[in-house]
Design a binder for these strands. Structure first.
Lengths: 282, 282
DNA sequence: AAATCAAATCCATATTGTGGACCTTTCCCT
DNA sequence: AGGGAAAGGTCCACAATATGGATTTGATTT
């Protein structure tokens, strides 16, 4: 297919189903506007696809039930099928459900906004945002938003929790995107922040992404030693000065401890094989 | 594309992205084996696709993160991206989360297995299965399983809760599939069962799908008057005789009442439009 | 009523997905 | 161990299918 405009040097991973990549990119794009909805024109702009292509993909995804279009506003939203798929996937990755009570407690105790972020390949994805009672709230990070690992407190906490060589490799692989779209985050800065986060035991973002929007984050480790995600709290600058920052970190660490305890079985592989033998026969 | 084998007379809905349809069908197929995993050969058999095609789609979906393949067993499972999408969709269709406590209570009180089913176009999809303590358990209905509306107690409850003309239309539209794949469910039987369910106030399935696996179901109505889904309980025949059946129906109705009360805002359209104006501008 | 913007549609073109045939690995039975 | 079967994975010529510039339709604003 004729590549539209941007799109870097060449797709890394071996050739596959390109139209599928496009379609799923559109699906993710709509997902990242979850709750708000997104217009065709915005999809065109953000995906770099042409209008007919974007439109066709949106329509096809809608027909399959993965998207739903509001007839009045013409905005595209995630559809019921996406919900079904995700619900079933939740049986395997039930991390969010476990974390929701923690987020609620964090938001209540801190009065600021608490976030759950998970790693998804090279990026951190915000899965949930729980608002506190404090009247000044930032809308810098929404559910569905993705940034390269290290950009933002939760995302940075995850990066810092990974083995050194893996973290370094990820920074490397993200360098192109960082350079292109995150001028405030050169790889060198990320390395420094990761270093600091490891020493301090928590990630700290002093308004690096948006001036005035500060945040702290702590990683959640699974019982297999892998990083599952991170909890973070964002607030305005003067609510994240040293004393309060220490307090918020303590809150986060308490919740992380609770989460670590009630970590669910990670779907043991041997078990699955045995089940499969029995069940996939029909 | 060359149509493989089966596939009826002609696809009804207007031409779109066929390969996408196939890919999403594969995704749904894997989802329907959530937890268990599915093998390439089974995907080939159940989807009617050829092996290279199925394999390519599975690989592409895996690369995009929507599927994950267990390296040891080669079984395909839903991937983290599916979880992300579904989690975000959950903000719009948060029905399942609300229903989980009810299912837990139903399973505990009845000692049998409780299910949550929702409508998805022409089908009922089992979203969750909560097992009770009774030692004889049927595995007739798993999370992710789909059947035409009316097949199974939960599915039948949903069908019976719809307006008469709509229900009739759905039976009509399902008649082909019923005839081909559900020999025990001729449309005429469905109409009769729907009639009974409306009179009785609950759906009853006396082992129609699998002999010995009986079930009762009650629909959950949203506050907009639309049917949101259904709760159901399945048990072996002698645990669904008249007296106990009445008891179980009462349990179901209690939980349905609780669910109806704490129904969430159905994302009012006007509100969404207003938000969109503000938020999709950037 | 005119103008502006966005959404939806058309259609010739060649890029892309397709599947029969083939190879490789794993598992099981003797 | 050895041999056979079944499943997973790959190749490549072919044409069916997605593509996007241009156009039409529809809605909203001035």
């Amino acid at each position: 297919m004729r590549r539209a405009k941007e799109a870097g040097p060449a797709r890394q991973e071996g050739g596959g189903t390109q139209s599928l990549q496009r379609a799923l990119a559109v699906l993710r794009l709509v997902a990242s506007h979850s709750g708000r909805g997104i217009r065709l024109a915005d999809v065109v702009e953000r995906s770099g696809l042409t209008k007919p292509t974007a439109h066709r993909l949106l329509q096809a995804l809608e027909q399959e039930g993965f998207l739903a279009q509001d007839v009045a506003s013409r905005l595209y939203h995630l559809g019921p099928e996406a919900y079904v798929i995700g619900t079933l996937a939740g049986d395997r990755y039930g991390f969010r459900r476990a974390a929701l009570p923690s987020l609620a407690r964090l938001a209540a105790a801190s009065e600021d906004t608490a976030f759950l972020t998970i790693r998804r390949d090279l990026h951190g994805v915000c899965l949930h945002r729980e608002e506190g009672s404090f009247p000044i709230r930032s809308y810098v990070l929404q559910a569905g938003d993705r940034h390269p690992l290290g950009v933002g407190a939760g995302s940075l906490a995850i990066l810092a929790a990974l083995p050194c060589d893996e973290a370094e490799e990820l920074i490397e692989r993200n360098s192109e995107e960082l350079q292109a779209r995150y001028p405030g985050f050169p790889p060198s800065l990320l390395r420094q922040r990761v270093e600091e986060a490891r020493i301090e035991g928590h990630a700290f973002n002093p308004g690096q992404l948006y001036a005035g929007s500060w945040a702290v984050g702590v990683a959640v480790m699974g019982r297999n030693g892998q990083c599952e995600g991170a909890l973070s709290i964002a607030a305005i600058e003067n609510r994240l000065q040293p004393d309060r920052r220490t307090y918020l970190v303590r809150l986060l660490q308490q919740e992380v401890a609770k989460l670590t305890e009630l970590q669910e079985r990670p779907a043991g592989a041997t078990n699955i094989v045995a089940q499969a033998r029995r069940l996939t026969a029909n």
